[in-house]
Structure formats: structure tokens, C-alpha cells
């Protein structure tokens, strides 16, 4: 195991994050604050409580998840796409490193960054509403799994993408709508019955629901399903990464 290489990639990726620390942290903080102003204050005053939780607090897990998912994807995808784009990937390919070590470095760094952002958003939310975490251990487990699995997913997108447009495509066209429709800002039970059934096909519902359960003890779907969903997604991403490296897909001709 070439741990020096894992460390080199990790430090390098974290340096990239630190170089733009203001942008990296300011944008999720500002957008979270905006969500609070719009959803929490303006709409929340009309809704008051959902299943015994104030609306302002109710949307916090969904907000954290939205930022964590998009940040994990954009960081990890850019991290591996950029060397491909500028050509420095030659160094990765000619180094005595295994694919596993490359993934560990890139995905580890992207997961760390998104975790930090999640924590910062949670801190920001505390300024607006009072939040208690009912199941801290499960909260951390969910958060970690989401950081890791979506960083893996981002890594896959970064390998697949052949231009900057494709890099933006999945987060913009797939993740954001799924999160918005996945009960980040409402309880699934508030929907008409037909739509509730449709919603159950949205994988993000399970993630948001489980994560919210760890905060407030209320869930749209059983917690076990949520765990299965996030573990299943992680395994799918791992399998895809394994296949990419086994075949050299878009990396090594």
C-alpha cells in the first residue's frame, strides 16, 4: 500500500479546498441562509409544525443533505476531471499507485470537504432555529455514508465527463430535482396519495427521511429502508468504480 501517495493526493485536494476556502464555505452558508429566509420565515410562518417539529427545524436535515450531496459530487468530479482536462493525469497513471489508492485519496478528500460543509451548515442553522439530535450516532453514520457515497458518485461523473457541461449535467439535472422532490422541504405524507406512491421511486426520499429521523425521530419511510438505500447506493458506486478501473474506462487506453 502506497500510503504516501494517498496522503499526497489527499493533501493536494485539501489544498485546493483551502485555496478557495471563502468560496467553498461562503456559498453553502449563504444559500442555506437564503433557504431559511425564504422557506423558514416566509413559508414556515404559514405551516408552523410538521409532525410536532417546527418547519424551520424540519427543513434543516434536507438543507444539509442538499448541500452535502451537491458539494460531494462537484468536489470529487472536479478533482479527477481537472487532471484529465489539463493532462496532469499522466503523473497518476505513471506512479506506483493502485486504483484503490487513487480513489482513497480523491474520494477521501471530497468526503472530508463535504462533511465540513455539512457541519458548517448545521452550525449556521443553529443560529436560526433550535435543533436537537435525537440519534447522534445514526446522524453521524448517515452523514458519513452520504458524504462517501456521493463523493464516489462524483468521482465516477468526473471520469465519465468529457467536457465541463457534462460535469455540471448530473448535479443540475438529476440531483437537485430529486432532492427538491425528495421531501427536503416537506413531509411526503403532505402529498396526495398518488404522488406519495410516485415519490417512493425517488431514492433521495429514503436518504432525507432517514437523516431527518436521526434528528427528530420522525420518518416518511422506515429507517431500515433508509439504511439499506444508502448502503445499496454506496455499493453500486463502489462496483462502478471497480469496473472503471478494471477496464481503464476513459482513463488508460
Amino acid at each position: 500500500m502506497n500510503l504516501y501517495a494517498v496522503k499526497a493526493i489527499y493533501i493536494y485536494e485539501m489544498n485546493r479546498f483551502l485555496r478557495t476556502i471563502m468560496e467553498s464555505l461562503a456559498s453553502p452558508v449563504i444559500s442555506t441562509t437564503l433557504y431559511f429566509v425564504v422557506f423558514g420565515a416566509a413559508i414556515g410562518s404559514q405551516i408552523e409544525e410538521i409532525e410536532g417539529v417546527s418547519y424551520g427545524a424540519f427543513i434543516v436535515p434536507g438543507l444539509i443533505m442538499l448541500s452535502v450531496m451537491t458539494q460531494a459530487i462537484s468536489n470529487a468530479s472536479f478533482g479527477i476531471y481537472f487532471p484529465k482536462f489539463i493532462g496532469t493525469i499522466f503523473e497518476l497513471l505513471s506512479s506506483p499507485v493502485s486504483y484503490f489508492e487513487i480513489v482513497l485519496g480523491y474520494v477521501g478528500a471530497a468526503a472530508t470537504k463535504s462533511l465540513l460543509i455539512g457541519v458548517v451548515i448545521l452550525g449556521t442553522a443553529q443560529l436560526f432555529v433550535d435543533i436537537t439530535v435525537a440519534h447522534p450516532l445514526m446522524m453521524v453514520t448517515f452523514l458519513l455514508l452520504i458524504c462517501i457515497s456521493f463523493s464516489l458518485f462524483g468521482f465516477i461523473i468526473g471520469i465519465w465527463a468529457e467536457n465541463f457541461q457534462q460535469l455540471q449535467l448530473i448535479p443540475l439535472l438529476v440531483i437537485t430535482p430529486l432532492v427538491f422532490l425528495g421531501g427536503a422541504f416537506y413531509s411526503v405524507s403532505m402529498l396526495p396519495e398518488a404522488w406519495q406512491t410516485v415519490t417512493l421511486f425517488n431514492p433521495v426520499v429514503y436518504l432525507v427521511s432517514g437523516f431527518r429521523w436521526s434528528f427528530f425521530g420522525v420518518a416518511d419511510v422506515p429507517v431500515m429502508w433508509s439504511l439499506v438505500a444508502i448502503l445499496g447506493f454506496t455499493l453500486m458506486c463502489l462496483a462502478a468504480v471497480w469496473w472503471i478501473f478494471r477496464t481503464g474506462y476513459r482513463i488508460r487506453s
Binding site: 504516501y4 489544498n15 493532462g87 503523473e91
Partner: peptide, 20 residues
Amino acid sequence: TLEPFEPVINTLRFSQGMFG
């Protein structure tokens, strides 16, 4: 082909690490 934003010395540290 060089990472454009890193200081020169860091790119050398990166190379050393990559080669174990």
C-alpha cells in the same frame, strides 16, 4: 502539463509522495 495554481515546491512534494 502542470497544475496551474500550486506553488512549484508543492508540485514536487506531490510527485515525491506519488512515488511512495
